[in-house]
Design a protein around this nucleic acid. Sequence first.
DNA 1: TTGAAAGCGCTAACAA
DNA 2: TTGTTAGCGCTTTCAA
Lengths: 345, 345
Amino acid sequence: MTDKNKITIYDVAKKAGVSRQTVSRVLNNRQDVSAETRKRVQEIIEGLSYHPSAIARSLSRQKSYIFGVVTAGLKYIGPSRTLSGITSKAEEMGYGLLLKELASFSANNVHPLLGWLQSHQVDGIIWAAPEIEDNRNWLGDLLPEIDIPIIFLTMEKREDVSIVSIDNYLGARMATEHLISLGKKNIGHITGPLDWWEARQRKLGWEAALSDAGYKPSTHMWAEGNWSSRSGKIAFIELLEKFPGMDGLFVGNDQMALSVLRTAFEQGKKIPDDLAVIGFDGIPESEFYCPSLSTVNQNQNALGCIAVEELVRLVENKFMADDVIEPKYITILPELIIRQSSQTP
Amino acid sequence: MTDKNKITIYDVAKKAGVSRQTVSRVLNNRQDVSAETRKRVQEIIEGLSYHPSAIARSLSRQKSYIFGVVTAGLKYIGPSRTLSGITSKAEEMGYGLLLKELASFSANNVHPLLGWLQSHQVDGIIWAAPEIEDNRNWLGDLLPEIDIPIIFLTMEKREDVSIVSIDNYLGARMATEHLISLGKKNIGHITGPLDWWEARQRKLGWEAALSDAGYKPSTHMWAEGNWSSRSGKIAFIELLEKFPGMDGLFVGNDQMALSVLRTAFEQGKKIPDDLAVIGFDGIPESEFYCPSLSTVNQNQNALGCIAVEELVRLVENKFMADDVIEPKYITILPELIIRQSSQTP
DNA sequence: TTGAAAGCGCTAACAA
DNA sequence: TTGTTAGCGCTTTCAA
């Protein structure tokens, strides 16, 4: 390790025989520096392998080029895919990321977290944790106090904030209508945990598709899971009992669908003939389930990318002009992927 | 939004009728403040909902309480599980995280990235991207220039840096020995991409277990995949041809094992009687494969946690004392999970 | 084209 | 127990 005396702009200036401002101008690519001086300074910067302190810059510019990201459930694939979209787009747009993962999905006490982000002068916040129960209640109280642009992911439309969401309702409709188009007449549904907004939206889409086709969704036709494969199995067994005529099944996510496929196999049910199955998410493995799983693909990577793009818009606008941008509700369309589990023979 | 004039320590001081220093003392919980003054200042802080600027603090203290995290492949479950361990432990230890995801696993040009982290004065760096090909070559050149403690995840032992690794070699041995203990005599292997250090370690473990048991590993007994389910299928088909007597198979990860199970089913091979299969990783879904998959569980969450703990040790030591800590190579033991795919009938 | 002075918001060292 | 003075490393006036 080299000695700890870090090199500052002052060292560069001294060595170059110019003032610190001049070095600063070179660093910021200003035009008012003679070519000659610029070159000399640049060489010295190289030679000293000097890195200007981003922290000092942030302080003096009052802009950090850092976004705060609040996420939850990184050990699941969905949130990480979104995060991956966020990192790549943020990199592209020249922003760094300060990451916080909530201890639980439904974490409610966001006050200290917001304070922390504020104190770190993030230029904007991406709220990528899902909407569950009342974990958006803080918005009413705290939002007015925050002077930092925020963009939310996957939550119910509100007038006062910008949101990017995948259209879960539409995806569920598409899935259900697809099963109907197969000639299935008794279509069940395994929901996600219904305190999740996304799970409720998917259930609504299923109900709407059934109603539109002249069927009446009712309680014996659905069961609630919690996204996990284990819960999917339990819900499926429950459904087999209370909805014996079921010939089609829309499952709230792919992981639950995995154990549906397996349990159906164990029980001698033929898929898709006896029972057509479609999942939700489009995780890469679902193509290799046995049989391969039809699913509704949601592009979570794009979700993250779009969130960053929109946030950059909000932020740059705040710094440049003073005309407030209207909050937007941006919707991403899901996409149907048909595979063996719901293929017409 | 409230007005943009942010509240500073000066505003608090003025309102409380004390100096900024006194406010600073209250903020930092110093003892040399009268109870009375402290209380008054605290109330004003509350009332103004004042958040001290972490950026200004970092600048003046020369310590940011931020770690840089370099990761790759967040869209895959492994890296995200590790990241999740990192976030939770960092939170617990009072550190924030500045996140960078490499554009590709094998990204080689880390120079600007290191510069960026340095300029942001991170107190330490967690290098969580995997070791592939020559993407550790920069260590020799750049490491001496970096004055920031770094901890690396899952890479080959070196004397000059601290490393936390899961013992891939041992895990592979355990898996293979387990198959041997079942009475299997012709045990194949589907490797990960062999430019990955982890994949090579697993292959070595498989070879060692075979040799120790008196079998001779040879080229016709293994095939190379790239971690994906699709590649697993291709490799399996290749193996079926060139190693027809195969009655046991150690697969480099669970996703590839998924398509092995499926392909075996399609070909009428009975698992585990005709072919016993074991994977690697222990992803939650593997329990619900059909049949459920035996696997070597690697606790990636713990990997992240331990990395943070060790890094905190390095960092605090650097700030407190000046005696250099010896680099450590910490190893995490994997764990065998036996399920249907390798169960004695 | 360059430099001097002031300030970003905070803390450390010293005085009172 | 409190306040004063400097300074963290940079950028932004303004003047030369």
